[in-house]
């Protein structure tokens, strides 16, 4: 396989990039000065080598702790539980939330063989149970789909006995959608209108 074919194949595996777009990108890179491709290549290599999940919250970071967990100015009494690291980015963009995050790494999906044991629930319970933990409220920000709802209901069942306040993002987000694509103002409204479970 030629280098062109190999790069095209690798690019076309990325979300939103089909074979035609991948080919166009490869020809664009070939027209550019070689230094630009080398910088891109080095940056991707750095991404693979240096980025890892934050040991506390599960979002991606190149530091020992992610910038949110390390920021002492954040509200440590509120923890927002999301399905994936991308949703941390979506919620951060709203500027409405100043607490901490916890990434589940998925949602309950029996059809995919994903049950409670496949999610980062044990680490969530550990965080709440730490001697210096200040968490008073947990916001369940799973997607407003049947799978996201089942995940939230399951988490409520394991969190409620720990004596923390458990809230859920407000209804109003369309069911069956993905949090990743909700616009910022809708997400900000949902955060401010969260409800008791």
């Amino acid at each position: 396989m030629s280098v062109i074919d190999e790069v095209t194949r690798e690019l076309s595996r990325l979300p939103g990039i089909g074979p035609r777009t991948a080919t166009r990108l490869v020809y664009h890179l070939m027209r550019e000065p070689g230094e630009r491709s080398r910088r891109l290549s080095a940056a991707i290599r750095e991404l693979a080598d240096r980025i890892h999940p934050c040991p506390r919250c599960g979002t991606y970071t190149e530091l020992e702790l992610c910038r949110i967990c390390a920021d002492r100015a954040r509200d440590r009494t509120t923890l927002c539980v999301v399905e994936s690291a991308f949703e941390v980015h979506s919620i951060e963009k709203t500027g409405e939330f100043r607490g901490l995050f916890h990434v589940l790494g998925g949602r309950l999906s029996p059809l995919d063989g994903i049950g409670p044991d496949e999610l980062n629930v044990a680490s969530l319970l550990e965080r709440i149970g730490e001697p210096d933990a200040e968490i008073a409220e947990i916001i369940l920000a799973t997607n407003p789909s049947v799978e996201g709802e089942a995940t939230a209901v399951y988490l409520e069942g394991v969190l409620r006995p720990l004596g923390v306040r458990v809230t859920r993002l407000a209804r109003g987000l369309p069911m069956g959608s993905d949090l990743e694509y909700v616009d910022g103002s809708t997400l900000a409204e949902a955060l401010s209108g969260r409800r008791e479970m």
């Binding site: 369309p174 069956g176 959608s177 993905d178 949090l179 909700v182």
Partner: peptide, 8 residues
């Protein structure tokens, strides 16, 4: 769906 295109 996130823009109100209806649940699925």
């Amino acid at each position: 769906a996130s823009k109100g295109g209806g649940p699925l």
